[in-house]
Design a protein around this nucleic acid. Structure first.
Length: 820
DNA sequence: CGCTAGTCGGTTTTT
DNA sequence: CCGACTAGCG
């Protein structure tokens, strides 16, 4: 620690006398960090003893309460930084919390080793006591990809047809069991039977067995094994009970059963007598208290589908008797109309604790609802509105488009590319999940430990070096028989004539490389080692030769990876943390519109939020309804609530009558959520008398005959053929065959619709053209970030028409391309 | 072994 | 429509 003295100062001593006086003195000085908290927030910060549940509605200062509470504990000397357990769900949240605590208490935050995600804290505990659960402390953590590859091996070993019973499905099943804290023997018979004719449980058990031999865990084990450890080793449990004087949990509504069990073990301390074994425990009066503080919002629980149990938060006061429940209902984010709309909507949910959000802000703009004929027009409207805002000097960084499903994004991307409107897509594959990163890591893992079969297998033929399935299979079997790692087996067999000459030579070269790298592992700085490995293995070369659009990006990612290794002491340290902590937080500084899913928007806020796709079937998602029934609907509604409450000043909802999903045109009716918005806070735009606010029976958004302008979209043409949209848009028929179902997919034969791009939008394009001649001319070879390489075929002002090698013909603004 | 043409199946995402 | 995965050929 950089400055132990300062740390001591904050921490105080457990003994009551010096800390007490100092604390009182500080309290009288009315610590500055408490300034500006409202009474409820203050109560949440100052109620330190016993279980506390803080129900923090959207925008009510949840993180502030959490961080201030920690600062408060520290400055009162109630606990040392190392005696506080603070749990979040994501690394991002943990980082942010650390940052904010740091800004209040300074370096003391560096002494908080127990601030992190459930998983990272689980690892920390497990590494210390690994032998007690049958692991060695250097165990590796497998991610989903490794997990699936391992399961594939098991499936083929068990002679199970992978077509019928995919490894993916089994992985999900096992994950689900682990989320619920179930070990193989605890899996309910009925569920185990659902996979491979009742062999699910057996496979789960075999998989766990295999993990132990590999000295590996998957993500679920990080929780499950910790639970097992704490249950089976009372001494260890006592040690942590003693250590953690205060426990704080963020986003409690997202906890799953395993996390809940984990938490309860740590938080539900035995009564005081049990603790008196330790001398210092007797000295402090509240030792036996469960100083647990959970912060969450049942109305923002949107991860039920991956095991989160809203129930955990709903019954908190039963689990922790005497719990104090504090509601934070003053919203500091959104204007009146937005908040009213969101509150009214969420009130339709039955399973909730119930909060009433208030704001002292002005009413502001009403939430707008706009209809569009199809998703293309929807994207066009959103684009126009954004450009209007842009003209009024609104920052694009303060604008977000929040969609239900990621396939909705493309439409906006296409449109924004045409307009030359900068945007960024948030989410998508995360940094460490990208193939190139995983490959690079596999090389490093294999060099670091010759026992890491999974890593070795991943890169044995990447780049292609003539070591295909046959060779890998051979190595696999023989390594297993000889009870040695694949790498060791490979090293041996490379010098015999058991393999055909070609693979043998390849293998020999590869192993020579590995030996050389391993020899330099300790002498060379690990970043240099990494660069060397990536170069000499031919991996960098492979991407440099690749001419696809994302190859450049991948090379950047690799550079980024090597850069990020700098922060670690050595290769070992880097690899230990990488599997848990690696995520791309490379904040683009360019002013741009954010496009993301509603899920990934949780916790964020923007001045203006666009919410497209509010249609039955899409939002609420039909699948959610089918699979989860009412619970599914309520979760979708919470998602809508999350979406609306992301907006500070403007929320703009859209729905499209026609949408192309997977190449099929579907006709949808407006979302029921639209009917659940309060009339007084909503403004329906861009319709000429079509919408009548007729109460909740017949949707007031159902009737759509009256969009005035002329449209050339397929949906419109189809509608005209059919004679308009009477009948509420339910019918999905193509005109010939009658359609039964409401969500019937309808294939439209290729109508003579205008070619995508130029024609329908010519007017706008010309109007926006800068007039200055483009620096490009016909025939130029250019590179585009999204579309890759192509040739310019037409130039008009700053707009280029480009024939891309892979993506086909597109029209883009010239600032989006560069010459190659 | 590696490439390519065909099939299949497509919410939401963290660790 | 578009990507991921596989069977089957060179």
């Amino acid at each position: 620690m950089a400055d132990p003295l300062k740390l001591q100062d904050y921490a105080g001593a457990p003994a009551p006398i010096p800390g007490g006086i100092a604390a009182r003195a500080r309290a009288q000085a009315a610590p500055r960090y408490l300034d500006g908290l409202n009474p409820e927030q203050r109560e949440a910060v100052e109620t330190l003893d016993g279980p506390v549940l803080v129900l923090a509605g959207a925008g009510t200062g949840k993180t502030r309460v959490l961080t201030t509470r920690i600062a408060h504990i520290l400055s009162l000397g109630k606990a040392r930084p190392s005696e506080i357990l603070a749990v979040t769900f994501t690394n991002k949240a943990a980082r942010e919390m650390k940052l904010r605590i740091g800004s209040m208490v300074g370096e003391a935050v560096e002494g908080m080793p127990w601030l992190g995600t459930f998983h990272s804290i689980g690892v920390k505990i497990l590494r210390r006591h690994a032998e007690l659960v049958g692991l060695k402390s250097g165990f590796t953590i497998l991610d989903t990809d490794d997990q699936i590859r391992l399961l594939k091996q098991h499936l083929s070993a068990a002679n199970i047809d992978e077509k019928r019973w995919p490894a993916r499905v089994l992985a999900n099943l096992i994950d689900g069991w682990k989320n619920r804290g179930l070990t193989p023997s605890q899996v309910p018979a009925g569920e185990a039977a659902s996979f491979a004719n009742g062999r699910g449980q057996e496979l789960y058990a075999a998989y766990q067995e295999r993990l132990k031999t590999l000295n590996a865990t998957d993500f679920g084990d990080l929780l499950l094994e910790t639970i097992r450890l704490l249950r089976e080793q009372p001494d260890v449990l006592r040690q942590y009970h003693h250590r953690f004087r205060y426990i704080l949990v963020d986003e409690y509504q997202d906890t799953n059963v395993a996390q809940y069990m984990w938490l309860r073990l740590l938080a539900q301390r035995p009564q005081r007598n049990d603790l008196l074994a330790d001398g210092s425990a007797a000295a402090t009066p509240q030792r036996a208290e469960t100083n647990l503080c959970c912060v969450g919002d049942d109305d923002q629980s949107i991860y039920g589908w991956r095991g989160a149990e809203v129930d955990n938060i709903l019954r908190f006061d039963k689990d922790f008797p005497g719990a104090k429940v504090i509601r934070l209902e003053r919203n500091y984010r959104s204007t009146g109309h937005i908040l009213a709309a969101a509150s009214h909507l969420i009130a339709y949910n039955e399973g909730r604790l119930g909060k009433t959000l208030r704001t002292e802000d002005e009413l502001g703009e009403k939430v707008t609802v706009s209809g569009a004929w199809d998703s293309e027009e929807e994207a066009r409207s959103v684009g126009e509105e954004i450009e209007q805002l842009q003209r009024k000097d609104h920052s694009l960084n303060q604008i977000a488009i929040l969609v239900r499903a990621s396939y909705q994004m493309r439409e906006f991307e296409d449109r924004f590319i045409t307009l030359g409107l900068p945007y960024r897509v948030i989410g998508g594959p995360r940094f460490y999940e990208r193939a190139e990163i995983r490959d690079a890591l596999a090389y490093l893992r294999a060099v670091n430990s010759s026992a890491d079969d999974l890593a070795f297998e991943r890169i044995i033929n990447v780049p292609k070096r003539g070591l295909g399935d046959a060779t890998v299979q051979w190595l696999h079997e023989h390594a297993r028989q000889a009870n040695m790692s694949m790498m060791d087996m490979a090293r041996e067999v490379a010098n015999t004539d058991e393999l055909k000459p070609k693979p043998r030579q390849s293998l020999r070269d590869l192993m020579a490389n590995f030996d050389r790298w391993a020899a330099q592992k300790d002498s060379l700085p690990h970043t240099e080692l990494a660069e060397m490995i990536l170069d000499e293995s031919g991996y960098t070369d492979m991407w440099q030769k690749d001419r696809s659009a994302d190859a450049a990006g991948r090379l950047d990612n690799l550079k980024e990876l090597v850069r990020s290794m700098d922060e670690f002491e050595n290769l070992q340290g880097f690899l230990e943390h990488i599997s848990l902590v690696m995520d791309a937080d490379r904040g683009e500084q360019v002013d741009s519109v954010s496009i993301m899913t509603l899920h990934s928007a949780k916790g964020l806020e923007f001045e203006t939020v666009f919410l497209p796709g509010w249609e039955e079937g899409l939002f609420p998602s039909q699948r959610s309804l089918d699979e989860q029934g009412r619970a599914g609907l309520e979760e979708e509604r919470r998602l809508a609530h999350v979406g609306l409450t992301r907006a500070r000043r403007r929320a703009k909802i859209f729905f499209a009558t026609n949408r192309r999903i997977h190449g099929m045109w579907t006709t949808n009716i407006p979302s029921r959520f639209l009917d659940e918005l309060p009339e007084a806070d909503v403004e329906v735009t861009e319709q000429k008398g079509g919408f009548s606010f007729s109460g909740y029976g017949a949707s007031r958004f159902d009737r759509q005959e009256s969009f005035g302008s002329s449209y050339t979209t397929p949906g419109w043409q189809r509608a005209q053929q059919r004679g308009g949209f009477s009948g509420g848009g339910y019918s999905g028929g193509s005109g010939s065959a009658p359609s039964g179902g409401r969500w019937q997919k309808t294939e439209i034969p290729d109508l003579p619709r205008p070619r995508k791009g130029p024609r329908t939008i010519e007017g706008e394009l010309v109007a926006k053209s800068t007039g200055t001649a483009s620096a490009y001319s016909v025939g130029d070879r250019v590179f585009h970030l999204k579309f890759g390489n192509g040739n310019v075929t037409f130039v008009e002002g700053n707009k280029l028409t480009i024939q891309f090698d892979k993506a086909g013909e597109k029209r883009v603004v010239d600032s989006f391309v560069e010459r190659v």
